[in-house]
Amino acid sequence: MDASPSHGPDGAPVGRRVVLGLLGLGALGVVTGASVQDGLSRMLAPVQLRDPTGLTSLVPLGNTWRYYSVTGAVEPRDASTYTLKVAGLVDRPTTYRLPDLEALPQLSFTDTFHCVTGWHVPDVPWRGVRLSDLLDRAAPTDEAVGVRFHSFDGTYSVNMTLDQALADDVIVALGMYGKPVTHDHGGPVRIYSGSMYGYKSTKWLSEIEVTDNDDPGYWEARGYPLDGIIGE
């Protein structure tokens, strides 16, 4: 059995100072990290865009995308056979194919994508159909108070109130960064809501269901705020 040295501790308690220093540095980083990260990101964005090795995506440099999936690997859907159903408490349920959606008036804007856990990606160019246009065409009945988005991953769904869903910055996104939305980003079609955290923007969208409730969706049932408004 070992015991402490008989002649007492030797040397300075540097370990304790280092540990406390690191904790202090961590706290400072929490308070200032957002602006440091944004600064780094602005500096590094040109490098990352031209990085042929992909190595910069392995380290947490700059504001990068994090890809989430709540089921096993999601089977990609082909743009040529993709369909989107608008159904539930509506007078005119409709199923759209991708060309149908492309033929509707498109809205384009650039926005910062916010995850509720804190990471964000600035200046993301989006393009798509206003959700309010699709809902107007479907004509929700008088009982309608909510909208539920279903994902073709078979598990994910999320709620919004009908009023939230009719907001100007909620789109059924078809394009991102000037190209079709990729599978990893939830393509061929996903939701993007500019004033809400990412979990409200359903990936791999398969159905928009108008409902008589505002029941919590996948992450809301696991503790995330029901409204998911950025900054709240």
Binding site: V30, T32, G33, A34, T117, G118, W119
Partner: peptide, 18 residues
């Protein structure tokens, strides 16, 4: 990061960074 109601968004961004 996990209990998102504890601090405001910019601190959560800082926490993610750290």
């Amino acid at each position: 990061m996990y209990w998102t109601g504890l601090v405001r968004l910019s601190w959560r961004s800082g926490a993610t960074f750290v």
